[in-house]
């Protein structure tokens, strides 16, 4: 029987879907009976989902313009190979 502490140590394998059937069974048995661990698992999933909503800063226009200039320079010097 898994302890709550053990559940928190392997929770990520559960969230990742990479548990063997035996381990998954004991995990399900535990969280079926333990409200605290169910809450914990849900919080880990929620954390991952919130992390997925983190967005990057858009590229500053000046940087984009500079990169485009260099791209043109690269292309005009032959770029990706013969024929260009």
């Amino acid at each position: 029987m898994l302890s709550c502490k053990q559940v928190t140590e392997i929770v990520n394998d559960f969230v990742e879907g990479r548990m063997g059937w035996r381990q998954r069974l004991s995990f399900h048995l535990h969280i079926g009976m333990c409200r605290a661990c169910r809450t914990y698992v849900r919080q880990v999933q929620r954390t991952r989902d919130l992390t997925g909503q983190v967005t990057d800063e858009p590229i500053p226009p000046a940087v984009e313009a500079e990169l485009l200039k260099r791209f043109r320079g690269w292309r005009d010097k032959g770029g990706g190979g013969p024929g260009t």
Binding site: S3, C4, K5, Q6, R35, A36, C37, T39, Y40, Q43, R46
Partner: peptide, 11 residues
């Protein structure tokens, strides 16, 4: 024994 002493609280 590995039981919660301070269980997580629903968010």
């Amino acid at each position: 024994s590995g039981h919660w002493t301070k269980p997580p609280v629903d968010w």
